[in-house]
């Protein structure tokens, strides 16, 4: 077993700063690119499907809860910011503080999940299904595909949080937290396009 990477809450002054490089694991970035590609195709497919039935899409879009969508955007952005702070703390050798920021990030992510579950419950209660309209099909499948990524992201963030609790990361061992952070930011990035496209654009 390797020695704990993060045993002090301050970075030793003699530690040489790492040179610029791709943060995290190469494999996670290839995975992220594949995910972005899939989401990209899905988002563009929505946009072109809408162009064939603008009135129908705009009418169904009025039924969406934009406030819930906006609050969820704020939650994801704040969660991403907390993950950035956690990464910065690990880079500075402060695992205990990083762990606190990650708790905040996971809390915001859970907030997103709760709001989304209420949104889905309301939609299902109103008779929205995959076959009720083309808009509903896109709305449900696109947001649910994203929702699954939020859940996976939360599992990853929890694993990273455990890593900071066990002081597995440090200024010289950033790969794990950087990889988890990159995945979580990807989830945020996709939502930044999804929200204006599906909830607001008319």
């Amino acid at each position: 077993m390797s020695t704990p990477a993060c045993t002090l809450d301050a970075r030793p002054p003699s530690t040489p700063a790492p040179t610029p490089h791709l943060p995290g694991d190469l494999a996670i970035w290839i995975f992220i690119l594949a995910e972005l590609l899939a989401f990209g195709v899905f988002l563009v497919a929505y946009a072109f499907a809408r162009s064939g039935d603008v009135a129908g899409f705009d009418a169904r879009q009025l039924g969406l809860d934009r406030n819930a969508g906006a609050v969820n955007t704020v939650l994801l952005l704040t969660s991403s910011f907390f993950v950035v702070r956690a990464t910065q703390e690990v880079a500075a050798g402060a695992c205990a503080r990083a762990s606190g920021w990650l708790v905040g990030a996971i809390g915001c992510g859970l907030g997103f999940v709760v709001i989304k579950v209420f949104e889905y419950a309301e939609k299902f209660g109103a008779g929205v299904t995959l076959s009720s309209s083309t808009f509903d099909m896109f709305y449900l499948s696109l947001t649910f595909f994203h929702f699954m990524h939020v859940l996976l992201g939360l599992v990853i963030l929890t694993a990273v949080w455990l890593g900071t609790r066990q002081r597995r990361y440090g200024p010289d061992n950033m790969n794990g937290i950087e990889s988890g952070a990159a995945y979580w930011h990807m989830v945020d990035l996709v939502w930044l396009i999804l929200f204006p496209l599906v909830y607001v654009m008319r």
Partner: peptide
Amino acid sequence: GSLIILEFMA
């Protein structure tokens, strides 16, 4: 999105 990519994703 650019800010997320350049600053948050580092």
